[in-house]
Amino acid sequence: MSDQPSEAGALTSAVAQLPRREPLLSVRGLTAGYNDVEVVHGIDLDVCAGEVVALLGPNGAGKTTTLSTIAGLLPRIGGDCTILGEVQPLNGKRKVVATALGLRARGLAYVPEDRALFFGLTARQHLKLAAARRDTDAIEAAVAPFPALRAILDRKAGLMSGGEQQMLAVARALAARPKVIMIDELSLGLAPIVVEQLLPLMRNICQDQGVGVLLVEQHVNAALSTADRAYVMVRGAISINASAAELLADSTALSNAYLGEA
């Protein structure tokens, strides 16, 4: 497997055929990390409307750092970041809250790895808080993809199973009617069967609402069967940028990235 994106582009996939669009989310040379320790060393990444992009890679590669930096929850160290047409200034530590709130208001939703739910609040309360004040249909729209969640709207998040919590976390993101959703480890701690149900739902949301989805996922094959494209990150850098179909066809490269060279 080569890590040249140009060769990957030679392979045909549905997305590669689409005319070039303005990406919703575009990152160039992003460096990120905690305090002064750089974990992500200059990566490029795009997400367009209506596509599901998977960000794969072994543990510690810097995927979560990348996502929370794009979401504004971590101050970026360097590089350019254009989100929904707006170039993001390099804000320091002090402006983290304002930056993250501003990005969310513009239409960037983020479902973090730990889901960040409020265990003391019910699902309905989560959605009510997340929806805009006047947006009366928001709750309905948010649970539409998850019939299982609709049945337990008045249950507290702390009493839900892992899968139900994950649905709520995604529904909370949808309640704000975002244009881009970033989801970190959708399948963490979930049984494979639940993952197999959730991932296609993300595909539907993406297609129905024209939303761009950036997915960090450890169930590689499940992720690739849902995504259009995938980036593979190893040690803070993108090592593979290819279509999902191509990666599915050649699993050696992935195995090497994950389990080490045989």
């Binding site: 993952v195 197999e196 169930h219 590689v220 094959n221 699993s251 992935l254 195995s255 994950y258």
Partner: peptide, 9 residues
């Protein structure tokens, strides 16, 4: 292998 790469392998 299934646990690591997902059951669709």
């Amino acid at each position: 292998i299934a646990a690591y790469l997902g059951s669709a392998h």
